[in-house]
Design a protein around this nucleic acid. Sequence first.
DNA 1: GTCTATAGATCGATAGAC
DNA 2: GTCTATCGATCTATAGAC
Lengths: 190, 190
Amino acid sequence: MARTVLDRSDAVRALAGVFRRRGFESGSLSVIQQETGIGRGSLYHFFPAGKTDMARAVLDEVRRWFDENVFEPLRTTEDPAEAVTAMARVVDEYFTSRNRVCLFAAMTLGDEQDAFAEDVRRYFADWIDALAATLRRGGVTEPAAADLALDAVATIQGALILARALDDDAVCHGVAQRTNARLRSALTGH
Amino acid sequence: MARTVLDRSDAVRALAGVFRRRGFESGSLSVIQQETGIGRGSLYHFFPAGKTDMARAVLDEVRRWFDENVFEPLRTTEDPAEAVTAMARVVDEYFTSRNRVCLFAAMTLGDEQDAFAEDVRRYFADWIDALAATLRRGGVTEPAAADLALDAVATIQGALILARALDDDAVCHGVAQRTNARLRSALTGH
DNA sequence: GTCTATAGATCGATAGAC
DNA sequence: GTCTATCGATCTATAGAC
């Protein structure tokens, strides 16, 4: 029997898949073991504190991905309209290629809710703030920018629920497109 | 010790509370027993198939509530603008008074997902369809009405996630208000 | 119709060989 | 670093007294 040696980031990737498919609580160590092919010993080698460590590692990776591919581009892309459109496209691709599940949103329900409440809060607050700042750079005045950004993030998150409920990726694509259009039409010069 | 005799609807109400607070999977029979004060024997008397029966009973009650207080009013209220505004108000009140949790949305994640997939699909499809029909009665043309309705339901559902994440009911109130305004401004004569 | 006691399965986590 | 074996706790569900 082959003994596969893997590093922590392989394990985190595999865990993220299981958690997206089964949820945090349903994904028991037995199914994690089966679906990832990683033995119990290895899991506890990489994540000594067990399931909580695994959840934290997965959320940290998601957070890093959004920092790099969503939040930072929103802040640094010169043209606000371009920044908004890129966000819509990137986020749509991300979620449709990952079972239409946002693991931070999943963390707002269930047992471990409290343990990660601050991380969840910061993830959504940072997303909304980065988008609102982009809108302000594009000429949208303060209270409107904050509302528009919050509504946009809410609509995207709700689209994930509907896409799962209706089993239809087109829901995500349509919402991404219309959210993009709505945000761009709020920018000056449109 | 008092022996309280209760009927099934009392049990369903108590169960809904537990599921909203703890989620479907986290709410084990032990915590259900503790938090509802209903003994194990009684629970299996009312719900012979166990937890799945409990989940179905709770979802059925939620479904009935929405049929009566949301879907039917959308279809029968004469003035479309009035119907839309009533929906926004009623839904906002419902969710903010129930831990900001939509149990049908919660069912799109986790273990029992498959068992209730059809009920979940129908709940959201009926909501979107009823709202789209109201918009059409108000003069909105077909493709736009469907998109507007879907986006509205998505935004409301996403607002629940953000309200939990940011621990702030104002998110729900703000989204309800702006969704109402956006829908009304799409109706003819605005 | 409600209770307690408990069966049987599965859980998360640990130990120790290799 | 990975494995298997296994612990104690907890889970859902059942049985039987009242």
